[in-house]
Simulated assay, not measured.
Amino acid sequence: MELEQLKQLDAIARNGTLSKAADQLHLSQSALSRSIQRLEAELGLALFDRTKNRMELNDAGELAVERARAVLAEADRMQEALRARRDASRVLRVGTCAPAPLWRLVPAIAEREPNLVVMPEMLPLKELEQRLMSGSLDFAILPYVPDLSTMLSVPLMREDLFAALPEGHPLAGRDELALVDLDGETFLIFAGIGFWREICERHMPRAHYVVQHDYVVFGQLAQTSPLPGFVTNTPESGRMIGGRHIIPLTDDDVHVQFSLVAVNRPNFRFREFMVWLEKRLALEN
């Protein structure tokens, strides 16, 4: 028997007549009747009581419809599961602790795997590590090189944090600063800076932050605000400098080498991509 015959049997039961079922299925009545007759022959018994102008499900037919619907429902679940598997294979789940590494990674993914959909998430470091190990992320962007006995890792980029001080700030003439020198200040920052906020709070526990969630508005304010802020040595961050004094910071943890990290599992589907990416990024450096 075929799934199509079970669908036809269900349609007859739902519509009540052969003619209405044929209309719904876009079949002629004669074609539908022949298909049901073949099904009955295969099952070895009649499913309908037939008169000259009418056919009604008998007890065997009622049982057949019940079981047919169960088979059709299971077939639908199988198709949904396979569609979900297919769609998942087109999605790349990337967690990151900072925005800039994504700006470098996403164009490379588009170049190598144009059919993949990148789903990025900004997450705290502990959650990044946990979700990477659990398998709910394909990749994590971390500010360190992990234990390579269980991980695959590609050096992604280096990023350094700088203080951006407005004209007239008492420390604007310094050649370099430590974050502790700025403790107690009020800073203008963008909400999506990731783990850089954690570093600032660790070194400057008495600092305050005016947080802007809109990136465009933040860029406008960064050009005119009297509040100090921060930039990094990425081109995107550089647009926020305005007329500020950009001063290097001496703290060790503001100089970061980001790594693209994956768990070294059997049949990891992006292994070749990581090999290609490492070569691709090496050409840029």
Rank of each mutant, 00 (worst) to 15 (best):
A110T: 08
L47G: 01
P114Q: 04
Q5C: 10
E201I: 01
A46S: 14
F270V: 06
G242S: 08
L63M: 13
L156M: 07
P107R: 06
L277E: 01
P114I: 02
I141Q: 05
A164D: 00
L137G: 00
Q220F: 07
D251E: 15
M274V: 03
G173L: 15
D252P: 09
R174G: 04
T224N: 11
V65F: 00
V180F: 09
D253H: 03
A70C: 11
V118L: 07
L128G: 07
A100D: 07
D49P: 05
K7I: 13
A73V: 11
G184K: 05
M157R: 02
A13L: 04
G44K: 05
T17C: 06
G168V: 05
R77T: 08
P170A: 06
F190K: 02
G243I: 08
A262T: 05
E111D: 13
L32I: 03
L72R: 04
A222G: 04
V65C: 02
V117A: 14
V154A: 03
R67G: 10
T232P: 01
L188N: 01
N285G: 10
L283Y: 08
M1K: 03
Q8A: 09
F270A: 14
G243A: 10
F139E: 00
G243N: 10
E127D: 15
S19T: 15
E185F: 08
L125Q: 14
G16A: 03
R206I: 10
G194D: 02
E4P: 10
V94Q: 00
Y209R: 07
L123D: 07
V216T: 12
A282S: 12
V256I: 13
D23E: 12
D10S: 11
D138F: 05
L171N: 00
D253Y: 01
W276G: 01
S30Q: 09
A282C: 09
E272D: 14
R85V: 14
L92E: 01
K126N: 14
A21D: 00
D87T: 13
L171I: 02
A22N: 04
A46M: 11
A207G: 09
N285Y: 09
V154S: 03
K7N: 11
P146D: 08
M78A: 15
V71N: 00
R206P: 12
N285W: 12
D181N: 12
V210P: 07
K126L: 13
A222S: 05
T150W: 09
A84T: 07
A41N: 15
P205V: 04
P248M: 05
F195R: 07
E4N: 15
D251V: 14
S33R: 07
Y144K: 11
A191I: 06
N267I: 10
Y209G: 05
I241W: 01
E198T: 06
N53D: 11
G173M: 11
G229E: 00
L125W: 09
A88F: 01
R85W: 15
G44C: 07
L39P: 02
A22L: 06
S134A: 15
C97S: 10
L9D: 00
W196G: 00
S149K: 14
L152F: 03
Q212M: 08
T224E: 07
A88W: 01
